[in-house]
């Protein structure tokens, strides 16, 4: 149990009844929040209070609450996933705030992420980009070669892994002034580009995934790097450079 005193907060939260409704910011007061609570636990507290007062609780996406599922997606004080670096909203703790603070909480904003309700947005556009090529075409029959018959040098394996740790949260898009999905697409393209298993379909993959991202309404990349700063998994801009190389060499042929 925390010995530190609870905090009093003013919360300014985006409320929107459904996809077609007009939304607006509402103000709420919340007291006695433990600094050891997570940000989402603070919202649980608010919701409990709203329910007890007969009001409708704030809808927000979340599931694992440990920074890995990519469900949580809040824009907090103007930043996707809030003030912390390399963490998701669910990993943000209230000790990052001070007693008396006012906190703005909004959904991720992008044309390709329409709001469903309150702070919940629709990110299925990300899934559709993956359908366009985010896989190696190998059947799951188990009749493949022995795993160690495909050695991969450690450096490439580690880099592929780093790219593969993208959680598909969409913070990169929310951080970008063009709402570009480049970092997200580049992470997947890079993972396969760095591995021998990904080579055979490399060209079509990059062309199709980039095309799908455009069709979904994600903007172009202008190399500002805001995405890298806000990405909770530290996906590096290097991946975008690699994707661009893959894209150009695929377009040439």
């Amino acid at each position: 149990m925390s010995t530190s005193k609870g905090m009093n907060l003013t919360l300014k939260i985006w409320r929107q009844k459904n996809a077609n409704a007009k939304g607006q910011i509402e103000t709420y007061q919340l007291s006695d929040v433990s600094p050891d609570s997570s940000f989402l636990e603070m919202l649980d507290m608010l919701n409990d209070k709203l329910i007890n007062e007969g009001n409708s609780p704030v809808a927000f996406d979340h599931d694992c609450r440990e920074g890995i599922c990519g469900a949580c997606s809040l824009h907090i004080n103007g930043e996707p996933h809030g003030p912390g670096r390399r963490i998701t909203t669910c990993q943000l703790h209230m000790r990052s705030f001070k007693d008396g603070d006012t906190i703005y909480i909004e959904p991720f904003r992008a044309k390709a992420f329409p709001v469903i309700k309150d702070l919940v947005v629709d990110r299925e556009s990300f899934d559709r980009i993956q359908h366009a090529g985010g896989y190696v075409s190998v059947n799951t029959s188990g009749n493949t070669v022995d795993a160690n018959a495909i050695p991969v040098d450690k450096e490439s394996a580690d880099k592929a892994f780093d790219a593969a740790t993208c959680i598909g949260c969409g913070a990169c898009v929310a951080a970008c002034k063009n709402a570009s999905a480049s970092l997200f697409v580049a992470a997947k393209v890079s993972q396969y580009a760095l591995l021998p298993q990904g080579q055979i379909e490399a060209k079509n993959r990059v062309l199709n995934m980039v095309k799908q991202a455009e069709e979904e309404g994600f903007g172009p990349c202008s190399n500002t790097g805001a995405c890298e700063v806000e990405c909770p998994k530290g996906i590096s801009l290097e991946n975008i450079a690699r994707m661009n190389r893959e894209f150009f060499s695929a377009s040439l042929k």
């Binding site: 190696v136 029959s141 493949t144 991969v152 993972q191 298993q197």
Partner: peptide, 11 residues
């Protein structure tokens, strides 16, 4: 199977 799919296990 997983290696064939491109799962980046530690090496």
């Amino acid at each position: 199977q997983c290696v064939a799919q491109g799962v980046p296990f530690a090496r």
